[in-house]
Every structure is written in C-alpha cells, then in structure tokens.
Design a protein around this nucleic acid. Structure first.
Lengths: 138, 138
DNA sequence: CTGTATCCAACCAGATACTG
DNA sequence: CAGTATCTGGTTGGATACAG
C-alpha cells in the first residue's frame, strides 16, 4: 500500500504514459533496466563486484556455472552501459580488474531493496507455485 | 555508496553465500526475482495492475504490442507465483478481472525504487552506450 | 470477451576448441 | 590469465487460426 493508487505519483507510472506504440522500450525505463539485469548472470556479477573489484577468473570461479563466454558477454554489456569499469594491467601473466563505476554502485541500493523483497517473499512464492492449481478453492 | 563494502551486511549478499554449485537459483533470490520479472512484458503488467484492476482486453489494449498469447502466459506466470489474482465473472459476454495480490502489491515498492533509478540514469546509460568504444581514453 | 493450439523466427546460453 | 570463434540445443516471443 505504498505505490498503489493512493494518489501519489509513482516513478513506475513512467512505464505507461499512454498506449503509444513506441519504437523501443523508451516508454518504460524500468522494463529496460529489468531486461538488462534480468538475464541469467548480470545480477550475480553486479553483486560480486559490489563487494569489491574482481579479476576475470575470480568472477569465473566465484559465480560457478558461468562459462567464459557468458562472463565475457555479461561484462562487456555492463561495461558498454557504463556500469562496470575494466582495467587492463600489462603484467605477466596479464590481469584485468573489473569494478563497478559510480553508476554501477548507484544501482546497488535499488537492487538491495529488491533483494530484501526477494528474501522475504521467496518462500511465499515457492508455496504459491507448489499449490499449482492456481485456483482459489484449492 | 550505500550497499557497497561499507561493512554493513546487505541482502544482496544472500546472492553469493559461497561458490556452492547449487541445483537451482536458490542461491540467489534476487536473480530468481529478476528472471521472473525481467522478461519482456511482466513488469508492464505489474505496473498496470498496480494502478487498478484490469480486464484482459484492457491490459491487451493498454500495453500495445503484446499478443494475446504472451499476455496470457505472463498473467498465468504471475498468477502461479501468487502475485496476481484472477477473477472470472460468468457474465455475457464473459469477463475476467486481474488484480495484484497483497504479495504483488508489496513488490511495487522495490520496483518503484528501481524505476526511480532507471529514470534518473537512463540518459547516462544511453550516453555510455552511444560512446560505443567502451574505452576510458575517449 | 477470453482464451488455446500450432507453427516459426530470433535470441540466449552452454560446450568445446583455439589464441595472445 | 583472459579472452575469442564456432556450433548447437533450449527458451522466448510473435503470427495466425481456432474455440468456449
């Protein structure tokens, strides 16, 4: 009962100003962000980098299950959006340090809010999912 | 500068307790939520239902671009997770009313936080993306 | 009005092999 | 250590036709 129809304007309302066609997801910044961080690995990388900078193989080992290819793609995507910084050191062997940019760090707060919600309600969701029939009477 | 390594434990930390294999995304509730609402339409539906209950075709017209199939799938998924309530009225013609459950409404707050971030930073992201080269020197 | 069924294209993601 | 290239399977999403 916080962001519902209490009369207060919500930033969520920017999602649907009107049923205008839209050429992109310009109509809904939230949807854009969700699509960006809603893939399989991105949020894991962000969280890990939110703790401290990591090297490539540190991330690779830390995430467990991600392939080199997907880690690279994920990092490139984050870098392109200015959320992650990439520093190459010409050492032997070479090393690359990934860290969150200020923009990336600023995402941690809203992400944390979502994490809190997820932790508190995951059991409710799981229970509802197990109920299966999706019907009231049960 | 809020959920970073300031010493305070963050709910985001539940994402990576340790590099344990994990059979599912139990290891990271956030990732699970993001995957759920990170698809193309879910957040749009949630936002719309956050304003008020809607009928099927109201949503269909309101979202503009979604197909019947995807709207149904999206609603079914949300219903199965207990985020959306579905009420069938045996009128002529038949009508169905969709609304957010308390659980669904509780998601609006963290979603709103993310929306605020998205609105404030979408231009920065777009700029960084246009920069293209992804290099510091620029 | 509110869906379901089928078919199909595009993208995502994993395995593997190879490179500097 | 830090990637890239290629191939392939699975999933997502859209068009269309059909049904209660």
């Amino acid at each position: 009962m916080s962001a519902a129809n209490t009369g207060v304007p919500s930033p969520l309302d920017t999602a649907l100003p009107s049923p205008v066609p839209s050429e992109e997801h310009e109509r809904c910044p939230v949807a854009g962000v969700l699509r960006r961080i809603g893939d399989k690995w991105t949020v894991l990388v962000i969280v890990l980098l939110g703790q401290r900078p990591h090297r490539f193989n540190e991330l690779h080992r830390g995430i467990e299950g991600i392939s080199q290819r997907m880690l690279t793609r994920t990092l490139r995507g984050l870098e392109e959006d200015g959320l992650v910084n990439r520093e190459v050191f010409a050492t032997v062997p070479p090393s690359v340090r990934y860290s969150l940019t200020p923009l990336g760090r600023s995402l941690l707060s809203p992400l944390s809010a979502l994490a809190t919600w997820a932790v508190e309600n995951q059991s409710a969701i799981a229970a509802s999912r197990r109920a299966g029939s999706v019907r009231a009477g049960g």
